[in-house]
Design a protein around this nucleic acid. Structure first.
Lengths: 194, 194, 194, 194
DNA sequence: CATGAATGAGTGTTCATTCAT
DNA sequence: TATGAATGAACACTCATTCAT
């Protein structure tokens, strides 16, 4: 029990260190030795928990993606209307990304570079299924424009990633007012116009 | 002349090789030796044209950004209406990004990671001034919602980067129809509603 | 009893695993962890039975050498004639080495590299005393040429090790006919010619 | 010229260091860093001359094997009688192996472990062709017993390797008298008896 | 201008051994 | 007696950069 907990703690410390270091230097510029040091373990210990560096970052990605989508969909009710559902999900995402911007930034880096294996990326996409289901329903009900999911994503969710990125760069603070405007922009870009 | 031209050719070959290799492996996974080999020069020669690896990639970024904005704004007439101007610029950007997707992908990687020095990023942003001017005018005329330029960018231009990225991953082909819908989405997200 | 037996079993399993792994990869390319895994024990357990890796391989060597010489001399009658005695021992050795080629190959590796401590090698040589005694007698009786035991060994016993080695490489099968010829060659090389 | 010579010198120094260190510690116990230090180069420099550690040792093996067979067959006249030819070759081999015992010991280690790639071993065997040709002729002329070349090798050449090995261990000095006896033993083991 | 050879510092990873349980 | 988790010290190999030519 105490032993198992210790194991879990170590693994978590490694994941945490990986996120922080990759966020600040990128995958290839963060040596295993630094990750180990930050997690207060020996470099060799990493290999008790992960096969190699690629596996470590793959698993970290999936773990963060899981935390993210779990938080987003936890209180989501699939029975609400399309519009309410979309607003709920969008704002949950915005909430998570602003509050957990380290996670958001990490996911953004992973999604925009080649550091994560493709199969893992695809695995992570599955976690977003409820949103895709909602969009399907929205299109069927004629509320959402008949567009590829890639486009819907590009105009509603991806802008948030971009804004988090800009904020991280330091010249911009994403406040409540911005978020409300952003939500309107997102919805306007995909809703049908009578 | 012949000598100067040869020099320019070498520099261009280096820039080209950098783009191709960084696109396929990322900054830290492309060694100088490979760049040299692909450009058919000695590794030492790189240092005649660039201070170091960081300088090489910074300059490459600026050069690509310049090519990009130059192409986009070359035929842009600052006297047209806001709506026509926006459509012109947006479609020019879309055109460039789809045709020169290697350039687009490279810029996307640079903008979403920490590989380029911040001062250089800022320098590059200046090239987009005509678009920022247009947005200013649009907001003054009440045609474009009063939003931060970061938001306007997030909802009109950045989605294109995302879509190019997805296309590069291979599961999606960005065709004419998609682009038309994308343009509508972009405009709908920022235009004011009477 | 059950407990002691279990202990002996474990030790034997470790010795067996060591032989198999060293035969297939060499001493330095077989990690303790693999030996442990193959013997179905924890790495730490090895250290209950052996001081360290060197000790493990030393002891394994002696054990195999003992098995080998025991089998060879078990039914050897020191009272037979020199010629008959030599033939008996030679053929016993040949029999053991062909039947227990894993043991033979292991001994060969140990004898031709520096993996075993010298003192242990010397210890193992003692096990061959009956053969050395026979040679002494043979030389006294004028049947065997007056040569250093090293030479007698080189021309009678060592060729068998070499042939087992070649067979293990796969391009050669040491059959009965070969063995008969080999025996003749061995005897011819050391017997005196009237 | 000076440059090329320097390159050759460095390569030779690396080969020499490899032999010495492998002879004293075995393949897996000699780190590249030590080889580099002994050859007075940086570890990285090794990789300018050899692909990796395996390649280094493979090439070293072939080079030594070549030196060995070249020395042995240099003055060998294929037109002499079988008996004279055999004596010449055997004594040349003995001469080389006693004088260049470091080379002999290295080859012996390579031939009795799995450190050299099989294809390379096979390549090296080709260098011994003149001896195989001689044996063929000897068998045809009825002077040498009709035995597999493996057996002929086991009883004539291999004993020399064994004796060099024993000498290296220190308890035995292979002098002229021993060699003469050894030659007789070798010849007696394979010659036909009227 | 241009180079190929050279390298020191660093990388991911392995392994014999230990130790708390 | 037996263990699995942990590790420090190594290892093979790479790379940005330099320098003699």
């Amino acid at each position: 029990m105490a032993k198992l907990q210790k194991s879990i703690d170590k693994r978590n410390a490694l994941i945490k260190a990986t996120i922080e270091l990759v966020n600040n230097s990128g995958f290839h510029a963060t040596p295993m030795s630094k990750i180990a040091k930050m997690a207060n373990v020996s470099p060799a210990t990493i290999y008790l928990y992960f096969e190699n560096k690629q596996d470590l970052v793959n698993k970290t990605y999936l773990e963060v993606k899981y935390k993210y989508t779990e938080a987003v969909f936890k209180n989501y009710d699939t029975n609400t209307s399309v519009k309410a559902g979309f607003e709920f999900i969008w704002k949950s995402i915005a909430d998570f990304k602003t509050k957990e911007h380290e996670y958001a930034f990490f996911l953004n880096q992973c999604d925009n570079t080649l550091m994560i294996d493709e199969s893992i990326i695809k695995e992570g996409i599955k976690y977003l299924q409820p949103l895709l289901d909602l969009w399907k329903r929205g299109k069927e009900e004629g509320l959402i424009k008949p567009m590829s999911n890639h486009l819907l994503y590009a105009y509603t969710i991806n802008p948030l990633s971009f804004l988090i990125m800009v904020q991280k760069r330091g010249d911009f603070q994403l406040d409540k007012e911005h978020l409300e405007k952003a939500y309107q922009a997102a919805w306007n870009s995909i809703k049908t116009t009578k």
